[in-house]
Design a protein around this nucleic acid. Structure first.
Lengths: 230, 230
DNA sequence: AAATTGAATATTGTATTCAAACATCACTAA
DNA sequence: TTAGTGATGTTTGAATACAATATTCAATTT
């Protein structure tokens, strides 16, 4: 006695998902103006649900609304990317700790399966696969934490997506050969139920990536900051 | 050459703010159905901007949307309140650390002004004032951290609002006489620029509140869980 | 009486419409 | 040439309109 309208999915949500993936997949590029009429026609909906979807994306900071002028795909600043990493350091640290506390044997087995046959060469293919596995791994880790609010936050603020917005190595900040041992140690700490160790390792993992990112940014800045087209 | 439409504030945002404060102030109570026609008439707007505002509030989890049935004011579960505290423990810990790193003399002075002439008696008036000061203090602390993303998250997820949703002592989990010394120590650690100490104290502060909350919840459950009118 | 049906009514989700704000561009004046 | 001005066309923000779905409640059946 409660599965009435449930199943039904409103148009605006579909539009929201579609648009979001277009932005994440770079089909819409930072700075692009969102032509409502055009997108609405493409999606075969009116501007009403599109507008709603855009407002949602605005809240997530994927698009920027300028009143009376329209919506633009947002560009993340260096500062924001850094902040995303800083947040992940503590939030995924927390998730790792909780995961280690409540993990089931079946989950531990699945967790240990990650990166099992990773290709650590420098091939483009290998890097790409590793980057994908990296995302899946972190996603699963957060899931394991069972912290709904945390989950929502990371999801809605695209914290993770932002983290892969570096322009080299498929968004990876460090080379697989460097992060692989860290992943293995973290997996083992969680799978074997050692919360303190898991949290420490997760934080270390992000901390190192953040330091690396900082170094790169400083270097980039020193080399002469390219003008971004406003 | 960029302050064109800026200044203008769309209707849906005004409606959003108005509705949000109605919910936070309990003019709309958990479980209440939101009658769009009625609210729109009251606010003197059409349903279009109201709908948009409701979608925003849905994303923040202040209201729940049931497709084809409407929007309802959400009730926060005990679990959610606990999770809010758990998050604040680490997020405000981080904010405190950063605040201590970058605080200016003027800010330090303002910070030291908090709770200066707090009324620590048991009078309803005193408790209320203290609760208000508590909110302002934590708000300022987060501001001082200068962590925009963190700010947004705490704001948008109503993490702080949820924390004051306890039904006793104006939402305070512990008595002012107990928290006052903790506040003082934390203020001093930040104002005098001791990041590690500040983070430790902030986390301790929340940890204790969370433990207290847990105790109360267990007790309440043991005494017999009251049916909530569903 | 309790359950079921189904028309009447209300509400929702979306499309359409419209006025006001903004962009564009040709034209004028310095 | 360049800055300013106004005519013209777009785009936005919001109201209204409307079809689909949900709710209500009286009438009917069991």
């Amino acid at each position: 006695m409660r599965k009435l309208g449930t199943r039904h999915e409103n148009l605006d949500f579909k539009v929201y998902r579609e648009l979001k993936s277009m932005i994440v997949d770079r089909k819409l590029k930072p700075g692009d103006k969102i032509l409502q009429e055009k997108i609405a026609r493409e999606f075969g909906v009116s501007r009403t649900p599109l507008m709603c979807a855009l407002k949602k994306l605005e809240q997530e900071k994927l698009v920027q609304a300028v009143p009376r002028r329209g919506f633009y795909v947002r560009r993340f600043t260096r500062e924001e990317v850094l902040q995303a990493f800083e947040l992940r350091e503590i939030l995924e640290g927390l998730a790792a700790r909780r995961a280690a506390q409540i993990i089931s044997p079946a989950q531990a087995e699945r967790l240990r399966g990650f990166f099992r046959d990773a290709d650590l060469s420098d091939s483009a293919q290998g890097i790409k696969r590793y980057a994908e596995e990296d995302r899946r791994f972190h996603q699963y880790l957060i899931e394991l934490g069972g912290f709904d609010l945390l989950n929502d936050i990371l999801e809605n603020y695209n914290i993770i997506t932002v983290s892969y917005r570096i322009d080299v190595m498929e968004g990876l900040v460090r080379h697989p050969r460097e992060t692989m041992p860290e992943h293995e140690a973290l997996i083992e700490a969680i799978a074997s139920g050692r919360p303190e160790q898991a949290e420490k390792l997760a934080r270390q993992h992000f901390h190192r990536s953040r330091q690396q990112l900082l170094r790169e940014m400083r270097q980039e800045k020193a080399e002469g900051p390219r003008r971004r087209p406003d």
